[in-house]
Computed example of a mutant assay.
Amino acid sequence: MDAIWDDIEKLSAVCRAAGAHLPDEELRSLQIGKVAEEAGEAMHALHGLKGLTTCGDDHDWNEVQNDLVGAVIAALLAMHYVSPADARVTFDEIFHRRTRRGREAARAV
């Protein structure tokens, strides 16, 4: 997971440089919105895959997966935007808490 976070930090630096003319709070908000956009694209691809769209696009599971990965990347970037110094630690804590093993450990305390 460290390699992913290393890449997220590099990508964040590139994105922050591109948005240097915007206030930090706006960059955070825009990145959080990007998570929703990417998730929406995954849903659109799923609808197309199931023939539930009127746009005429043919979709497959690879497109759904591509858009899901886009949503994950956007979410990790958003975490880094919100708290660059401790995004990794916060992610690990929340991930642990949200897993079954984490919930069981929390109940035992």
Score class of each variant (00 low, 15 high):
Ala106Asn: 12
Val64Thr: 00
Ala71Tyr: 00
Gln65Cys: 03
Asp57Ile: 10
Val72Arg: 00
Cys55Ile: 12
Val69Arg: 05
Asp57Ala: 14
Glu26Thr: 13
Val14Glu: 06
Ala3His: 15
Gln65Glu: 01
Thr99Ser: 14
Gly48Gln: 07
Gly19Asp: 07
Glu104Asn: 15
Ile94Cys: 14
Ile73Val: 13
Ala13Leu: 13
Arg103Ile: 15
Glu93Gln: 15
Leu76Cys: 05
Val35Cys: 00
Met43Asn: 02
Ala18Pro: 04
Met1Leu: 07
Ala71Val: 01
Met79Asp: 04
Thr99Tyr: 11
Gly19Tyr: 06
Pro23Arg: 08
Ala17Pro: 06
Leu52Cys: 03
Ala105Glu: 12
Met79Gly: 03
Glu9Trp: 09
Ile32Ala: 15
Leu22Gly: 08
Arg88Met: 13
Lys50Ala: 07
Leu49Phe: 00
Ala3Glu: 15
Arg88Val: 09
Asp57Trp: 11
Ala75Trp: 00
Ile94Thr: 13
Glu9Met: 11
Asp67Arg: 00
Lys10Gln: 10
Lys10Cys: 05
Glu26Tyr: 13
Asn66Arg: 01
Asp67Trp: 02
Ala74Glu: 03
Val69Thr: 11
Ala42Val: 02
Arg101Ala: 12
Asp24Phe: 08
Lys34His: 06
Ala39His: 00
Ile32Leu: 12
Asp86Arg: 08
Leu11Asp: 10
Glu26Ser: 11
Ala87Cys: 08
Val64Lys: 00
Gly70Ser: 06
Leu30Asn: 14
Glu63Leu: 07
Gly33Cys: 09
Trp61Cys: 02
Glu9Asn: 09
Ala13Met: 14
Glu93Thr: 14
Gly56Ser: 04
Lys34Gly: 01
His21Gln: 08
His44Val: 04
Ile32Asp: 05
Gly56Asp: 08
Met43Ala: 05
Asp2Lys: 12
Glu26Val: 14
Val72Met: 02
Glu9Cys: 10
Thr90Leu: 07
Gly33Phe: 13
His44Trp: 04
Leu11Glu: 12
Leu11Ala: 14
His59Asn: 04
Gly56Val: 01
Gln65Tyr: 08
Ala108Gln: 14
Asp57Arg: 09
His59Tyr: 14
Glu41Thr: 04
Glu25Val: 13
Asp7Leu: 09
Leu52Met: 05
Thr90His: 03
Gly48Glu: 11
Thr90Asn: 07
Lys34Gln: 07
Ala36Lys: 02
Asp57Lys: 10
Arg28Tyr: 10
Gln65Arg: 06
Lys50Asp: 04
Asn66Val: 01
His59Pro: 02
Arg101Cys: 08
Asn66Glu: 08
Asp92Pro: 03
Ala45His: 05
Arg88Ala: 08
Gly56Lys: 06
Asp7Gln: 15
Val72His: 00
Arg88Lys: 14
Thr54Asn: 12
Gly51Ile: 00
Val35His: 00
Glu93Phe: 12
Asp86Tyr: 07
Asp60Asn: 04
Ala36Gly: 07
Asp92Ala: 07
Arg28Val: 10
Asp58Tyr: 08
Gly70Ala: 06
Gly40Lys: 05
Gly51Cys: 01
Leu27Gln: 11
Tyr81Asp: 15
Leu52His: 05
Val64Pro: 00
Val82Glu: 10
Cys15Gly: 05
Asn62Glu: 03
Lys10Leu: 09
Ala85Pro: 01
Gly51Met: 04
Ala45Arg: 01
Glu104Pro: 07
Arg97Gln: 14
Ala85Gln: 04
Thr53Asn: 11
Asp58Arg: 10
Ile94Phe: 12
